[in-house]
């Protein structure tokens, strides 16, 4: 087996082991933390597809995370009060079945990503970063001031949506759902990045001129990657909404976009399990530093800084380097 694969498996196994261990020890909240890591990791896996493999630095993925969350919240709240979501052009009723909600969440995000991507991909570099940010901000301000679904107060839906055969309110069973989807998304990413499409995408990132010369049209490839990436992040948003039984415009905020990006970079850009490792470490730090000091965010900032400056490949890059050194040394 190659070393990357081992590292990826170890990261995923660790996450599952923490959740199972905590479950056995009766630490319900630690299971919830592991669930949060799986969900935010999934959001990062989505961004990584665009950012890591396609070189598309999106500073607006909170838009898709929030759309996934809001679709879930809207379906669940309509299921509770029995009103249809839409009557025109067709009647759309609420639902509290996760299996029905997820495709809707991903579809909504795909449409948004198609529009945002088509416009943003006309630019590149810093402009792309800022344009994606601007689109997310636009949606954020809309969500705050649109009263229909609670505006800034957000939307509570009291009970988690249901999944056939499982009790979603039980922390470990909900973890199983999230970890299962995370595993699927990782598998999907692994397959896609090795496919012809994935190779084309990576070629456009490494050298646009050369990839054009061999007949790859960069924009459609990038747009496809951007949309797929948004769909995965939206799925994470849907799971996050169910984790909290609540959605709010803060899911759209630029802090959220920044955090998702931090997960990716912290773990290691373009590494399959990088975002998972990044999210897990971020949550661990947040949890450990919180009780140490009211000013824990400063400590967190210093640690992030140290990683960017001294470990440019992220945590996974650092680990691989250390492994290589022990082998040779």
């Amino acid at each position: 087996m190659n070393r990357d694969l081992i590292v990826n498996l170890v990261i995923f196994a660790l996450l599952v082991a923490v959740a199972l261990g905590a479950h056995v020890a009766g630490q319900g909240f630690t299971v919830t933390l592991a669930t949060k890591a799986a969900i935010l990791g999934l959001a990062g896996v989505g961004l990584n597809l665009a950012l890591g493999y396609g070189g598309l630095v999106s500073f607006g993925h909170a838009a898709f995370f929030g759309i996934g969350g809001y679709v879930t919240g809207i379906f669940a709240s309509h299921a509770a009060n029995g009103d249809p979501i839409l009557t025109l052009p067709f009647t759309l009723m609420g639902s509290n079945e996760m299996l029905g909600i997820w495709p809707m969440a991903m579809l909504a995000a795909a449409l948004a990503a198609l529009l945002i991507g088509a416009l943003s991909l006309r630019t590149s570099g810093v402009y792309f970063i800022m344009v994606t940010l601007a689109f997310a901000q636009m949606i954020y301000y809309f969500a705050i001031s649109w009263p229909r679904y609670g505006g800034e107060d957000g939307l509570s839906f009291y009970v988690r949506n249901s999944f056939p055969g499982l009790n979603t309110f039980d922390p470990i069973q909900y973890f199983a759902i999230c970890a299962g989807l995370l595993a699927l998304a990782l598998l999907f990413t692994a397959v896609v990045t090795q496919s012809r499409f994935g190779l084309a995408l990576q070629a456009t990132r490494q050298n646009e001129q050369r990839s054009t010369a061999v007949g790859i049209r960069a924009t459609p490839v990038r747009l496809t990657a951007f949309v797929l990436s948004a769909m995965i992040t939206a799925l994470a948003g849907a799971l996050y909404a169910d984790l909290n039984r609540f959605v709010s415009p803060s899911m759209f905020s630029w802090h959220m976009s920044g955090e998702i990006m931090v997960f990716v970079i912290l773990g290691g850009v373009g590494r399959l399990c990088g975002p998972v490792a990044g999210a897990a470490v971020f949550i661990l730090l947040e949890h450990l530093l919180g009780p140490v000091s009211d000013h824990w965010q400063a400590l967190l900032g210093l640690m992030l800084l140290a990683i960017v400056l001294f470990a440019p490949g992220g945590l996974i890059g650092l680990t691989l380097k250390a492994l290589r050194r022990t082998e040779h040394g």
Binding site: E152, G154, S156, Y158, N244, R245, F246, S248, S250
Partner: peptide, 13 residues
């Protein structure tokens, strides 16, 4: 208020 709307139903629930 927006935090209360998230926490209060979770607590009473």
């Amino acid at each position: 208020s927006n935090l209360a709307m998230a926490v209060v139903p979770a607590a009473t629930g």
